[in-house]
């Protein structure tokens, strides 16, 4: 009898423990699924960077970002162990004048949309690079998104981009407020 009594007490404890563990497991699984869902929403492709001329401590890298999710996301920061500072920039060529400006607010990727960084458009600028990138190297780059969190990609270092359509970028004709028609004495 005493056995039955004690045995049932142990069973209760065991059941409670198992139940909690299972609940934890289930919750954890859901959390993991939710996490990976928002992570998977952003695909990172075509990651490459330019070799840097000797003695240059700066350069540019390019990635293509696709947002398969239902909500807009925003690339807010980038970093690499190879550079002291990493900034998001946009180059524009308007009326044959090249201008480069930092994008302090990051780069938005609309749901279902994509951002294609390319020479003459959006790029990631590396500053304070002690060892200039050289062709064939692979550079680790961490990207920080508002929704998808932190992601790591590898940039291939090469002199020219793959393929032919390497100029400009398609960011849904976004509104980065280009200063059109500014004064300037320049050739066409």
């Amino acid at each position: 009898m005493a056995r039955a009594c004690c045995g049932s007490g142990a069973r209760d404890w065991f059941a409670a423990l198992t139940g909690s563990l299972m609940a934890l497991l289930i919750a954890g699984t859901f959390a993991a699924v939710a996490d990976s869902a928002s992570e998977e929403a952003i695909a990172i492709e075509e990651a490459w960077a330019r070799p840097m001329p000797t003695g240059r401590e700066l350069g540019a890298g390019y990635v293509t970002l696709r947002n398969a999710g239902d909500i807009a996301d925003r690339l807010v920061a980038a970093s690499t162990p190879r550079a002291e500072r990493t900034e998001l920039h946009e180059t524009t060529v308007i009326d044959d004048v090249m201008r480069m400006r930092p994008l302090d607010g990051g780069i938005e990727i609309e749901p279902g949309g994509s951002i294609e960084m390319a020479p003459g458009g959006l790029h990631i600028m590396f500053l304070g690079v002690a060892e200039p990138f050289s062709a064939g190297e692979r550079i680790e780059l961490r990207l920080e998104f508002e929704q998808a969190g932190e992601r790591t990609v590898v940039l291939e270092v090469r002199a020219r981009p793959n393929g032919d359509s390497h100029h400009g970028n398609t960011h849904g004709d976004a509104d980065h407020g280009h200063a059109h028609g500014e004064e300037g004495d320049h050739a066409h």
Binding site: V97, M98, D104, A187
Partner: peptide, 30 residues
């Protein structure tokens, strides 16, 4: 630059440390 009609304008980079700047300039090859 003036004779060659090349546009050149120095532009400070706000968050650059120590007077960092970029230079807007004509992009074409002559």
């Amino acid at each position: 630059a003036e004779n060659w009609r090349v546009y050149v304008r120095k532009v400070p980079l706000e968050d650059g440390d120590g007077g960092d700047y970029t230079v807007d300039h004509t992009a074409s090859v002559y």
